Amino acid sequence: MTAILIGVCLMLQATPPPAADTVETHLKRAAAFEQKRDYDGAIPELRRALELQPDSVEAHGMLGEALLARGYSAEAIPHLERAERLDLLGIALTEEHRTAQAIEALLTALQKKPNDPDLLFYLGKASGFLSKKSFDRLITSSPESARAHELMAESYLAQQQISNAEREYRQALDLRPDLRGVHLALGLLKLGAGNLDEAEPEFRAEVKLSPGDGEAVWRLGSVLLQKGRTREALAELERADKLRPQMIETLYDLGKASALENHPDAAEKAWLEVIRLDGTSELAASAHLQLSQLYRRQGKLAEADGHLQRYRAMAKGKSPN
């Protein structure tokens, strides 16, 4: 009998006591499950933690993350809201097509993590949902409106159906001749086809409607520059630079027009500014080449060689020193 009692005591000593039913214990278990991406194992632990402590922000956050990982986005949302997990909340809201709220949450989250690929992806997705919803409503409610024709033009343009796009843009202008942006779009169509003579009047019409639009003014100046009308081009490009400072496309063309009109100091200033603003761009590489030619004409051979070396390095895909 004594031996039996001793055996029972030893068995009781060898059996570990049951784990405490505490919030900390369940959170620890859930964390171990989530570390292994076993969200099905984590979810019941987190539900029990919230039964014990309904206001646990940590448990709400972890449960929201686990539910979202398993596709339960609607159920995850209130938990993520309680935990203020705006990154995951934005993703969950996107999955539920609550696009306006999703965009707001994602934009706020991106302020802290501006290059997060998931946030950027879902922001694009949410924006796409919102755009489609708005566009569908526009086509349904006002199919013959100028904006509907403009939208159809952009749809055709995305499909490379250029003639259909132009037709829809023209119909939009027939309905609303003062519709800003349409002449600019038509000008870009003509420019893309290499038709400078037809692009110019479209850009002029856009500038007349939107004299404060720096891009439209640059486009007009750029076309004039390509047509060899450098004095007119220079005037438009100088105005574009005042309307929208530090736009590298304007500055590059401004440098070319200034050089052609025998204003080397202005050309140098514009091209150096292109390099300062975006030193790794294709325009910056071209600015280095233009500066090398400018300095060589001025007899500044060392400066010319330096910019030529930078141009060549960038052309080969190397970062300039």
Rank of each mutant, 00 (worst) to 15 (best):
V8F: 14
R29F: 15
H60Y: 05
R29C: 01
K28R: 15
V57A: 09
A32R: 09
G61P: 11
A32L: 08
G61M: 05
L68M: 10
L10N: 12
I43R: 13
R48G: 02
R47L: 03
L52C: 10
A14I: 09
L46H: 12
L52W: 07
G7A: 04
M11E: 06
P18C: 12
M11I: 06
G64H: 09
C9D: 04
G41S: 08
G61Y: 02
R37D: 07
A20F: 04
A49D: 04
E45M: 13
E51M: 13
L27K: 11
A14V: 05
T25R: 10
A59L: 08
D40G: 01
L27H: 06
A76I: 14
A59F: 12
A31I: 09
A14T: 10
E24P: 01
S56Y: 03
Q53C: 01
A3T: 14
D38E: 02
E51Q: 13
G7L: 02
C9L: 14
L52I: 09
A69K: 13
V57C: 00
F33A: 02
T22I: 08
R47D: 04
L63Q: 05
G41F: 00
E75D: 15
A14S: 14
A42E: 08
A19R: 13
Q53N: 15
H60S: 01
P18G: 02
A59E: 05
S56W: 10
L46F: 03
A66F: 08
T25V: 11
G7E: 02
L46C: 00
Q13L: 14
L27A: 11
G64R: 03
P54L: 04
P17S: 07
P54H: 02
D21Q: 12
H26W: 05
D38I: 12
L52K: 08
G41Q: 01
V23R: 14
Q13E: 00
A49K: 14
V57Q: 15
V57N: 10
P16K: 11
A42I: 12
A66T: 07
A3P: 04
Q35V: 03
I6H: 06
A42C: 10
A3W: 03
E58L: 10
A59R: 09
V8I: 15
K28P: 00
A69F: 00
D38M: 04
S56H: 05
G71V: 07
T22F: 01
L27G: 10
P18Y: 03
L5T: 09
E75F: 05
T2V: 03
A30C: 10
G64C: 04
